[in-house]
Design a protein around this nucleic acid. Structure first.
Length: 569
RNA sequence: CGGAACGUAGCGCAGUCUGGUCAGCGCACCGGCUUCGGGAGCCGGGGGUCGCAGGUUCAAGUCCUGCCGUUCCGACCA
């Protein structure tokens, strides 16, 4: 490619509405342009990067036996009815009616459709199968953000495994774990595998591959000592034991005028430390109210609440709902004596005595509460969100918490889809059994953005060779100089002949413009040809990532660069 | 969905409070000359129904109403 003919619209200024680094740089370096909220056009340079990411993924999934498909983006609504997911997905599914009045949805994932195809697997002898596709997903995200990191239309590699039993699933799941680890390594990213919540996918377990970044939307708790790592939606930690003082025989109500928060009660005379209080939250769980109890200093992790209760929707109750239900406002709530509302409590409250909580009457609290004696708890769950510094559940060392981008997610689905859709096989005893499934996803454009998030500096992007749109740029300092152009053309032809992705910057621009563009666009290697070096038969060789520059004999340049590029792919 | 901000040329912005030389600046773009190893200088030039629709007014980029769009924070999230 000759830069003079290429459409790489780089910008001098940062785009105004880009906050995330990857968003800012991908727009500025001429990779993407926004069409509407959460929808982007990929320009030629981005298309090249995406193709390389795609190739890495295909190679690794093929390596573990994947067969590539291409399924439709248009789905009949009924299929999603059969698994009940049309409800679960709600407004996030794009829907419309065709000219004949049939309900159509746009595919946001393909469990249902692949499972429908799997209905044609009829014998255990045909298992295992591993099917995948690289295809467009459409999701009406409530809040698209950060450029390519969270969008409404994107490309996903989604694979689906089909096995006779759990042992088979485990094998394919583990194979994906290894394949994913290899993929992210090849893409130049340091991905951490973490225990995750399965959310709307369901199933028995899942692992996310997380890449640390300030633009990440997820928080990961990790123990640097033993390697324990989990999304905070699932993470646990050891709770420091509290030794309770003996309490009274019965709880006692006392006046607490103006006290509305945990913190208020800590400083209120006759109050209690936060870890000696019971925090009472009101949640609407699939429309039914419930009291959620935690230690005063423990935050609720909402996804845990949803996961453990099996809820489709769990939301905080509105102030009016709280008052109607409890006869008091948030800040004065408690579960003592409550019997007509479901009470869900965090395990850290088990066995606690002499606690303080709200009295369900504004300006009054109750102290001397013995949880076992005074509160009728319907269910005990792990509900609190882990905080940085808390002791690791495995080894007791302090946990760190960092924000991360979810670059891949693998799920053990079990029979969640095969059962309702009737995808069964006959086993060796002639008995029909639902196929045991797994599903495995990687978002291509999100990974492109994640790579930028982890490979940039103040000059722009610095792609790993494996995904760079061009591996080498030949920068001609003085296009008008015949000898320079001649040497550059020779080198360009030699590198092309060696199979190197090379772009020749033959634009009639000042050198500074070309150097800056090469760095902004992020091309890993640059060979600079100018009259200065040419006089002694040399060119300059610059590595983008380090900025290191050395002189190389023009005659050796092609061989040297080819070798470097091949080693780094 | 709740909160906030924004919408003027391809990009980044000023002008809006206080209606009347307010259709402007920088970059980019086109032509010319001089330059040419880290985003050149000078001269000349093209490009905008000021998001859309109503309204107020002698007069609206500017004031009022409604709508649309975009971003950020939160909620939600595969």
């Amino acid at each position: 490619m000759r830069w003079s003919r290429a459409f790489i619209p780089t910008l001098r200024d940062d785009p105004a509405d880009a906050e995330a680094v990857s968003h800012r740089l991908l727009v500025r370096a001429g990779y993407i342009r926004q069409l509407m909220s959460g929808v982007y056009s990929l320009l030629p340079a981005a298309f090249r990067v995406r193709a390389k990411i795609r190739k890495v993924i295909e190679e690794e999934i093929d390596r573990i036996g994947g067969q590539e498909f291409l399924l439709p983006a248009l789905h009949p609504e009924e299929i999603w009815d059969e698994t009940g997911r049309i409800e679960v997905m709600g407004a996030e599914m794009f829907r419309f009616v065709d000219r004949r009045g049939a309900g159509i949805v746009l595919g946001m994932t393909h469990e249902e459709i692949f499972t429908t195809l799997a209905q044609e697997i009829t014998s255990y002898k045909q298992l295992p199968q591993l099917w995948y596709q690289i295809q467009t997903k459409l999701r009406d995200e409530p809040r698209p953000k950060s450029g390519l990191l969270r969008v409404r239309e994107f490309t996903m590699k989604d694979s689906y495994s089909f096995d006779l039993d759990d042992a088979g699933l485990d094998e394919q799941f583990d194979a994906h774990f290894e394949a994913y680890s290899t993929i992210f390594r090849r893409l130049g990213m340091d991905a951490v595998a973490v225990e995750a919540s399965s959310g709307a996918m369901g199933g028995s377990g899942s692992i996310e591959f997380m890449v640390s970044s300030p633009s990440g939307e997820d928080d990961v708790a990790r123990c640097v000592n033993c390697g324990y790592a989990a999304n905070v939606e699932r993470a646990t930690s050891q709770v420091s034991a509290i030794v309770d003082e003996p309490g009274p025989d019965a709880p006692e109500k006392f006046a607490t005028p103006g006290v509305r928060t945990i913190e208020d009660l800590v400083t209120f005379p006759g109050g209690a430390d936060a870890d000696r209080q019971i925090k009472t939250l009101v949640y609407m769980i699939d429309g039914e109210p419930a009291l959620v109890l935690l230690r005063g200093d423990h935050p609720l992790q909402e996804q845990k609440l949803a996961d453990q209760t099996g809820a489709i929707e769990a939301r905080p109750a509105h102030p009016e709902e709280i008052n109607d239900l409890m006869g008091a406002d948030a800040g004065s709530l408690g579960a003592v004596g409550v019997s007509d509302i479901r009470v869900i409590a965090d395990q850290a409250l088990e066995g606690r005595t002499n606690m303080t909580t709200g009295a369900n009457e504004n300006d009054f609290h109750i102290r001397g509460v013995d949880v076992a004696r005074d509160i009728s708890v319907d269910a005990w769950y792990d509900l609190r969100e882990v905080q940085a510094g808390e002791p690791c559940v495995e080894c007791g060392e302090p946990l760190e918490v960092f924000s991360a981008i979810e670059c891949g997610h693998i799920f053990k689905l079990g029979v969640k889809y095969s059962e309702p859709l009737g995808a069964t096989v006959l086993d060796e005893n002639g008995k029909a059994r639902p196929i045991v499934m797994g599903s495995y996803g990687i978002g291509l454009e999100r990974n492109m953005a994640a790579i930028v998030e982890t490979h940039h500096d103040d000059k722009g992007i610095s792609w790993p060779v494996a995904v760079a749109p061009w591996e080498v740029v030949i920068t001609v300092v003085k296009v008008g100089d015949e000898a320079s152009m001649h040497a550059a053309e020779d080198l360009y032809a030699a590198l092309q002949g060696a199979g190197v992705d090379v772009i020749l910057d033959d634009r009639n621009e000042r050198p500074g413009v070309k150097f800056n563009d090469a760095e902004l666009v992020g091309i890993p290697y640059r060979i600079t040809i100018g009259p200065r070096g040419l006089a002694s038969g040399e060119a300059e060789f610059t590595t983008r990532a380090t900025g290191a520059t050395e002189n190389v004999a023009l005659a050796d340049a092609a061989a040297k660069v080819t070798e470097l590029v091949r080693a780094a792919r």
